[in-house]
Design a protein around this nucleic acid. Structure first.
Lengths: 150, 150
DNA sequence: TTTAATTAAGTTGTGCACAATTAAACATCA
DNA sequence: TGATGTTTAATTGTGCACAACTTAATTAAA
């Protein structure tokens, strides 16, 4: 019952291999999977890791700011941040100057995490095994496309 | 309580903007979101659309074959396919020659769907507003990276 | 040919991702 | 000031995505 019979699709635009979306979708998941064993040692998921990248850089950010930078909404961030709060890695408090905003801050344990995360990027680069030149070109190309669509 | 204070990260590899993973992750989601309004008219989600691209091309595929082509496992596919079965768009039956395998086939309504989906790729291309040359280069680059990792 | 190993789906549980809605705080201005 | 509109999070519900496990069918080995 295996596949390779005559394609029925007259329209090549409707074939998986001609899509741009699919390799993006698949590659994104594969890279997340490449991070998984490294992040597991830190007890982090990939989206949680992205949140920490921002917090290590900025110490404090509102949920709104995190959402803007990561292109995620509160429906995704709120439960994620609550899980990090429960682990005592971050703090969540209302901004006294604007009670609508929730400010996310690093707790000591969350700050400590950075030391152990330092090796993650290098290990990923090693896994990808990609020429730095090519890496940089692709990164820039994707970022350009991202800002064009955003 | 807004961000831009002095970064604390001494390691630039730990900054979000220097990651390759992030634009991949974000772009993948943005493109899915670009499909969403088009697919909504077909009552399809994006992963369901990918399944149909393959079925329109091959008429019949096992769950295993779908999983190999889409890089998804049965934990993802089984419930997705059951939802499509409930809508009478696909059939699910055991292969009599190997009762372990489940063969997914197109039902008439699922085949009909293709006619309405024909316009989706063009509309997406229009949305992306990307030179065909650049599109093709990026698609090939991502596909290469994909097969390298896979 | 019984036993052991392998394979294919399905199941369970967790964590995103996001649309849609709600609620509270703030801003605006009639 | 009070009514109106906007902004910010939180909530609810659906659908992936995937790790870990289970079950049944097939294959390989002893």
């Amino acid at each position: 019952m295996n596949d390779e019979r005559q394609p029925a699709t007259s329209n090549p635009l409707l074939q998986l291999e001609n899509q741009l979306c699919f390799p993006l979708y698949a590659l994104s998941r594969m890279i997340t999977k490449a991070y998984q064993p490294l992040l597991q040692e830190l007890d982090l998921t990939y989206p949680q890791y992205l949140v920490f990248l921002l917090l290590w850089e900025h110490q404090e950010l509102t949920v709104k700011a995190l959402g803007e930078k990561l292109l995620l909404d509160s429906g995704t961030l709120t439960p994620l941040l609550k899980r990090l709060e429960q682990k005592q890695w971050i703090s969540r408090r209302r901004d006294p100057r604007d009670e609508r905003s929730v400010v996310i801050g690093l707790l000591p344990a969350g700050r400590e995490l950075q030391k152990r995360a330092c090796q993650v990027p290098e290990q990923i680069l090693a896994k990808l095994n990609m020429p730095p030149q090519e890496f940089e070109t692709l990164r820039r190309q994707l970022n350009t496309l991202l800002t064009q669509l955003g």
